[in-house]
Design a protein around this nucleic acid. Sequence first.
DNA 1: TTGTATGCGTTATCAA
DNA 2: TTGATAACGCATACAA
Lengths: 338, 338
Amino acid sequence: MKDPVATPRIHDVARLAGVSPATVSRVLSNPSIVSERTRAAVEKAVEETGYTINLTARNLRQQQVGAVLALVPNLANPFFSEILAGISETLRAEGLSLLVLDTRQTDPGAAGRGLQAYLNRSRADGVIVLDGSLDRSLFEHAACPPVVQACEWIDGLHGPRVLADNQTGARLAVEHLLALGHRRILHLTGPASNSLSVSRAAGVAEALEAAGLPPAPRIEGAFSLGSGHTASAGVLSLPERPTAVFCDNDEMAIGLMAGLRAAKIRTPEDISIVGFDNIEMSAYVSVPLTTVRQKRAHLGRRAAEMLLAHRETPSPDTEIILPVELVIRDSTTALRKD
Amino acid sequence: MKDPVATPRIHDVARLAGVSPATVSRVLSNPSIVSERTRAAVEKAVEETGYTINLTARNLRQQQVGAVLALVPNLANPFFSEILAGISETLRAEGLSLLVLDTRQTDPGAAGRGLQAYLNRSRADGVIVLDGSLDRSLFEHAACPPVVQACEWIDGLHGPRVLADNQTGARLAVEHLLALGHRRILHLTGPASNSLSVSRAAGVAEALEAAGLPPAPRIEGAFSLGSGHTASAGVLSLPERPTAVFCDNDEMAIGLMAGLRAAKIRTPEDISIVGFDNIEMSAYVSVPLTTVRQKRAHLGRRAAEMLLAHRETPSPDTEIILPVELVIRDSTTALRKD
DNA sequence: TTGTATGCGTTATCAA
DNA sequence: TTGATAACGCATACAA
C-alpha cells in the first residue's frame, strides 16, 4: 500500500544506485570522501528519482534549525526591508533561511510573551535584532539563540553589534548647517530612549559645542511621516523659530516639510532641513532632501556575517561601526541675513 | 557525561511529573484528553524545567515544515512589505513561521535555479507568490508545496489567487479624469507583460470606450521612482502632450511628478496625475497624490487564509477579488480650457 | 485515561 | 572507501 506519488527518500536513491543510504548522504554533503565511480552512480540515481533532501530530518539530526530570525520593528518600513535584503543575501549563501517577525505585531498586552516563544533554539539558529525598543530580558535566557544587534541596539544587552556611525552622521549634518550660517538649529528626534536618537543627539551636541553654541532644542517624533508632519506645529510655535532642522530620519523630514509647506513655510528659503538614511524617496520629493547616507544592504550583510561568526565562536562584545556620508541636495541653503 | 546546561527534553518533563513522555506530549498538543490531575502535574513540570518543545522533531514526526514561504519581487519595496505584514499576522495565529525570499536575489544567470531549491515540500508547507514575473514551470512539479498567488499572478499557473480589483481601480481613475474634462490621457504602465498592468490597461480601455474615446497611448515603466522620472521625458516629447497621466503605481507617479517639475510642468495645473496603491508617502508629497487605494495588509491576510484552506482541501482555481477605492487628493484638477 | 513501542528521514560513529 | 547501526526529539497506534 505504498503511495505511488510519495517523494523519494534517501533510501530509494540508495537502492537504485546499489549503495547504502550512508553513502548517498556522503555524496550529498561531502562528495570528496566518496569514490568517483559511486559518486557518479549516486548522482545519476538522484537525478532519476528527483530526490531532494528532507531538511527537517537533517536539521533534527544535526541539532540545528537552518534558519535565522530577524526581528524588525516595522516590516512596512522600507528602511528595514533593505537591511533584510542584505541579511537574506548572506544567509542564502550559507544555506540558511530567513525568518521575519514584525515586533509590533506581538500583541502589546502580552508584553512580548508572543515574541518569547520565537526566541528559542528550536525556532532559529540565531537572531538578528533590528529593534532597540525591546526588553533585554527577552534575550537573556539560556534557550535564546545567539543574538546580533543591527542598526539599533538595546541598552545593556551584550553581544556583537553592527551599527552605522550615527554620531558622525549627525555631526556632519549639523556642521553642514553651521557652515551655511545657521545657529538656531532644532533636532527632530525619534523616541527619546531610542538608541539611534541618543547617539545622534551626541553628534549634534558635539558639533554645536565645537562651535561654542548651546545645545539644540529638541522635538520628539516617532520616525514616521505622520510624526514629522505633526512636529511642524511644534516648530512653528517655538518662541524663536529655528532656521534649520536636523531630523533623525528622512520620513520625519519629509513629513515635516509637508507640514511646513501647508503653513506656507518654504524649504529651504525659510528653513533648511536635513534628514537621515537617504531613502530612495528623498531624492524625488519636490525639494530633494539633504541627508546622511548609510548603506543598509551592506549593514544587513555584515550583521548576518557577524551572526555566522558568532555561532562558531561566541565572540565578545564586538562592535562594527559602518561609515556614513552626507548627501547634500536642495533642502539646505545658506542662512539669509534679514 | 551529561551536559549540565542541556535544554530539557520531553523525557525530562515526564520523569519530573511522574508520567510517560506520551502524556506530556498530549498535554502540550491536546490537553482535553488528559485528566485534570496529570495535566496540572505536567504543566508544573514544564514550568519548573523551562521546557520548550523541539519544533524540528515535531515537524519531522508530523511531516510538515511549520513555515510558509513568501516570494516577493522586491523586499525593499514598502508595497510588498505591508502585504507581508498581513501574511505574517495570519500565519502566526496558526503557529506557522514566515520565510521570506527576494526573487531578484536569485542570480539571474541561473534562471531561477536558486529559487527552485526553495520550492520544495521539505522547505515550506506552502508558498505565497507575490511576483508575477516568475516562470510557471518553477511551480509545476510534484515537489512544490501548495501555491497561492497574491497581488500579481503568473499567466497560466493554476491555483487560488487573491487580487485587488485592478481593472475597476483603473476604470475609476480614468473615469475621474474624464469627469474632469480630460481627453488626452496617457497610461504609464509597468512592464508590458505584468499582470497588473494588463488588467489595469483593461480598466483604462473600458472607461475610454464607454466615453467613445480611442485607446490611451502608453509608456512603459518599471514600477520604480526612477522609471517614473525617466518617463517624464517621454511624456513631454509626445506630439500631442497629454493633459493627464494614469500611473500603474504611486512610485512611478511621484517619479513622474519630479521629472515634470524639473521641466517646469506643474501638477495639477498643467497636467493631472493619478497613481495606484495609496502608499503612505502619496499623502505627503508636495502635491498629494490622487490614487487608488488597496488594502495591502488585508490582501496579505486573505492570501494566508487561502493557503491554509488550500492545504486542507486542495481547492480549484478560486479567485478572490478585493475591492479598491479612489482617493482624490490634489494631483488632479479640472481641465483648463485654453 | 495512560503507557509502550515504533517510526518520521537523516547523519555520525564505528567497524569492516 | 563503504555499510550497518543507532540516535536526533517527538507524536501516534495500539494495548492496557
